[in-house]
Design a binder for these strands. Structure first.
Lengths: 217, 217
DNA sequence: CTCCTTACCTACTCTTCAGTAGGCTACGGA
DNA sequence: TCCGTAGCCTACTGAAGAGTAGGTAAGGAG
């Protein structure tokens, strides 16, 4: 059996476009998350995906398009995971709690997705980060709305600062998620509860020993 | 007068190495902060600096070295600015308050420095980010120590979570600083006080209307 | 005046990699 | 059985940009 014959026989069969696109995106997320956007080469992605480079261009377009597609897919998954845990009927603190839990659970399960979202997309000033910045804004708006609602239901005028604080909270979550990647011995629930206590009760209470606990469902 | 003669006559005189190095670093910070590490070219940096490319290589070494030098210089300035405002004699909340104020003041005054530190260095997985990660760790350790001290002086065992919370706070500060870049109408003091209230009092107090205020010095 | 060091430049090389041209083959329908 | 389309590849081009070779010249020391 010649080399050519062997290669032909062991080559995976022709697959429908859908499947290939998934394979390519999976590979791209892996490679981007490992090397970063610029150091990731289309050649390596095609190799990991098990297809040739022109296939990528045919199906997903240029490098930037491919990256944007990765971001879009992973960010959508993240947002959906969070949305699944939160309903507007819950009290504000419970909404935040479930949101945080869902977030850390996602990060714990999809470390690569998280890396490509956070570490890569944030930085590059190029046209791709827009996709990611938009998602981040959505997250901030979500938290902002939560804060505004919880203030107004108590009859107060919403503070000017809610949007800024929402941004701070999102940043805190991201940073804590990064810390967590280096300390995997802690459970996702524990990490979430730390942050919950910080933002809901403040350091002041860390010092005095008061803690927030979720009310039983 | 020929072109050559004009060029020669308008050319800035020979300058000592020190001065050139400063010019080059200034240019590098500007260009890196605008385009990001990868999209910044040595040619452009040399042009902005007003020297030729080989000068950069002679004085500051390769691209990575140059970038690391930028990070080191800017990060050192930031840490010194923060350290200048904080003394260990102050109460924990005042230490945090002054640290935050110094931080936001620095960001407000040195936007480019901040961009190159935060947006660029965090992301690239290369050998340079180590410089930055080290600085970030120092900041986290500083906050961690603050939390541990404030807990132990109250006779409590320090919680396991202080390091994680310190990371969260640093992330919140970074994220809030980014938000602030897009909302320059707010004063640095105001932004600092928002974050201070968040971390010291929690959202719970935002909702109930309690606020932390610095005790008069 | 000569020599040597230090400042400084032009004009390359060489590599890496995004993106493409052009074609081959499996397979379903007419 | 012939044809069209969709899956798939090898083998290239072209540009950008990091890094360098090999110089010129200013100016101080002797």
């Amino acid at each position: 059996m010649s080399v050519d014959e062997e290669r032909r026989s062991t080559r995976v069969k022709r697959l429908p476009r859908e499947v290939r696109e998934r394979q390519i995106l999976d590979a791209a997320v892996r490679v981007f998350s490992q090397y970063g956007y610029h150091n990731a080469s289309m050649d390596e992605i095609s190799e990991v995906a098990g297809v040739s480079k022109p296939m990528i261009y045919a199906y997903l377009g240029h490098k930037e398009d491919l990256f944007a597609a990765c971001i879009r897919r992973e960010a959508t998954m993240l947002m959906e995971a969070i949305a699944a845990g939160v309903t507007t009927e819950q009290a504000p603190d419970m909404q935040l709690w479930h949101g945080l839990r869902a977030f850390f659970q996602f990060v714990g399960e999809q470390k690569q997705s998280w890396r490509v979202l956070h570490r890569q997309a944030t930085s590059q000033g190029g046209p791709f980060s827009e996709e990611l910045l938009a998602m981040r804004s959505r997250a901030i708006n979500l938290v902002d709305a939560l804060l505004v609602r919880s203030a107004t239901t108590r009859g107060e005028a919403p503070a000017k600062s809610t949007e800024a604080l929402a941004a701070a909270l999102v940043g805190a979550s991201e940073s804590l998620a990064d810390w967590w990647l280096d300390h995997p011995e802690v459970s996702d629930k524990t990490v979430a509860s730390w942050l919950m206590n910080l933002v809901w009760m403040g350091f002041g209470d860390l010092v005095t020993g008061t803690v927030w606990t979720p009310t039983p469902e």
